[in-house]
Nucleic acid binder design. Structure first.
Lengths: 170, 170
DNA sequence: GTGTAAATGACAGCATGCTGGCATTGTAGC
DNA sequence: GCTACAATGCCAGCATGCTGTCATTTACAC
């Protein structure tokens, strides 16, 4: 973790630090994991910022980006709590996003044959074209960010992240 | 990404979906990356929740967890903007956390010889014992979550995450 | 059928993090 | 020394996400 602090440049106050803490008995796996945790926090923030920047011309935000992506992939429609379960967020958080997106004409609520109260969320034509426009920005972005990264590394990282998700999500 | 939707269990509405979308011309790396991005969002949320649960008995929160960890590792003290740079957050966000933590007696502001206005953040004795108590919860947690994960996988994932951070943080 | 538990909608309140704006202090070039 | 730019403190407003609560609907065991 000292590495994490030291890695960030231009921190005058920490010049004389970083040498002292006797970090003995630090199992490498433990340190790797804690470093990974902080890095995930960092990456998450950057990805949200990146998503906001990438979608602002489309009338979207990173929150809508997630929702529209999930809805676009479900041909039969999803309920709000269903979207929340996919995204691992509270249904209230998703509900607020979808309400605004419905006002903006990106999605519509349709009767759910399986459930009288819990309506289905579907993309409107405007929502679909927003999703297609999104894809045209998102896909090059994804390709650009992985061009010099081996597939194996991506697979290993994804497997690890999923493993942690599975473990923490119980 | 269909996999992401399908992977989440107990979603009745998506039963009849997930089969249709003709995801041709999807380069595997692109799909892997987008899946990784969504998984990082998911993992981030779980880690924050985990951090909150882990630290609530110590009078901490996940936000304070990050701050106290950074401050504890810098023997010379850090300025608020310095902490923000390490964490990759805005100085305002960190300032609000540190102000409350100072009120709670976990940290103190000390004069900065290098800068008249920008004070240094240091742990109080109470803050140090909170950090030690934190370590006693955090370390077993880290070990528990990595016991069946190869070191090489952790290293690969960390390297990849850092690589993405470096690329997005410019 | 009935009753209980789970799921959902709706509302309120709170925590975290961001941006923008403005005044003040430091830094560096001249 | 002066000036211009950067860094910092402080304030306000906003977006996102969480929990808690309550009423209603749905699902399921009996």
């Amino acid at each position: 973790m000292d590495a994490l602090v030291a890695r960030v440049g231009s921190i005058r106050a920490s010049k004389s630090a970083a040498g002292g803490s006797p970090s003995s008995a630090h199992s490498p796996k433990r340190m790797l994991f804690l470093d990974l945790v902080l890095s995930v926090f960092r990456l998450n923030g950057l990805l949200v910022a990146e998503g906001d920047a990438m979608t602002e011309d489309l009338g979207l935000t990173s929150a809508r980006w997630k929702v529209i992506g999930v809805v676009a992939l479900s041909t039969a429609g999803l309920t709000v709590p269903g979207i929340a379960r996919v995204l691992g967020q509270s249904r209230q958080a998703v509900q607020r996003i979808t309400d605004v997106m419905a006002q903006d004409g990106l999605i519509t609520y349709q009767p759910n044959p399986k459930h009288k109260r819990s309506v289905l969320v579907l993309l409107t034509d405007e929502g679909k074209s927003a999703y297609h426009a999104l894809r045209e920005v998102q896909d090059p972005w994804a390709i650009r960010n992985t061009e010099d990264i081996p597939v194996e590394d991506l697979e290993t990282a994804l497997r690890l992240v999923r493993r942690l998700i599975q473990r923490l999500d119980k």
